[in-house]
């Protein structure tokens, strides 16, 4: 049995770009997050449902999140001062499997989907792998976490839809994405990006899905995806699925 209810203290809450914020939550003990790619579900005052947010990094008792302010709930989160005690469900979701990566895996992030790839990159480097990270954004002003990935020891490329930074286009337009030396891929981003990768990538991989959730821990069936093994809850059986599991409609 795992207690998934925690009170975590906000240690940092900073605006990084016009839309993206970084929040560091501090626990009184280590080990709450057990795999890269898991998420937390945050209670927000005035909202009945929680806000599910991917874990970007884990450093001892500190859990780092990146989040976009897209509505009232995430706006409310952006107003939490340092010292605010958040009601948090964690760990949620399965997470990525670093053991499948091979020597030189690709990590493909779109927008705020770059967040969960960071802890994965660090764990891959620790395992002696050489991760190649491609970060895709709409425009140069949206680019986040590029330097952090580089400092973690990854080879990093950036693509922007408007060409204002790095390769013009999507992550798939970066030549490193189609390099035959790549052994496996891990991706997180908007559904159209994940679907395109699922259809086009010749190598095996894992995709982290996003959906509007109610519970976040596998009982309400509000977030589901069709898989080869029947419908599965994204929050509990995912958010990470292997490419061959998913059936896109």
């Amino acid at each position: 049995m795992t207690n998934i209810a925690h009170k975590l203290r906000v240690a940092e809450n900073l605006r990084l770009t016009s839309r993206t914020w970084k929040m560091v939550l501090e626990a009184d003990h280590e080990g709450i997050i057990t795999a890269p790619g898991q998420f937390v579900n945050l209670e927000v005052e005035g909202k009945f449902l929680r806000r599910p947010i991917s874990v970007c990094g884990v450093d001892g008792r500190r859990i780092t999140l990146l989040y976009d302010v897209v509505g009232e709930g995430t706006y409310e989160m952006s107003q939490w001062p340092v010292g605010y005690v958040a009601d948090v469900l964690a760990p949620l979701g399965n997470g990525f499997d670093p053991s499948r990566s091979g020597d030189s895996p690709l990590l493909l992030g779109g927008g705020i989907g770059v967040a969960p790839l960071y802890q994965l990159a660090r764990e891959l480097v620790a395992l002696g792998r050489r991760p190649v990270v491609i970060l895709g954004f709409n425009t140069a002003d949206d680019v986040v976490w590029e330097e952090e990935f580089r400092q973690a020891g990854a080879e990093v490329y950036v693509a922007t839809v408007d060409g204002s930074r790095g390769t013009k286009g999507f992550v798939t337009d970066v030549p490193a994405c189609t390099d035959p030396a790549r052994t496996y891929f891990y991706a997180c981003g908007p559904l159209p990006m994940l679907r395109a990768l699922s259809d086009s990538m010749p190598i095996g991989g894992e995709l982290s899905l996003e959906a509007r959730m109610a519970c976040g821990f596998g009982v309400c069936m509000c977030c589901v995806v069709q898989t080869a093994d029947g419908p599965k809850g994204i929050c509990k059986k995912g958010p990470v699925f292997r490419k061959e599991e998913l059936i896109w409609k």
């Binding site: 909202k47 959906a211 959730m213 109610a214 069936m221 977030c223 589901v224 419908p231």
Partner: peptide
């Protein structure tokens, strides 16, 4: 399989589901 996503919405004192 049930209904297409999104299946949920909310208000300050409750939620909507259409699973």
């Amino acid at each position: 399989f049930g209904n297409p996503l999104p299946r949920t919405a909310e208000c300050p004192a409750g939620m909507i589901n259409s699973v």
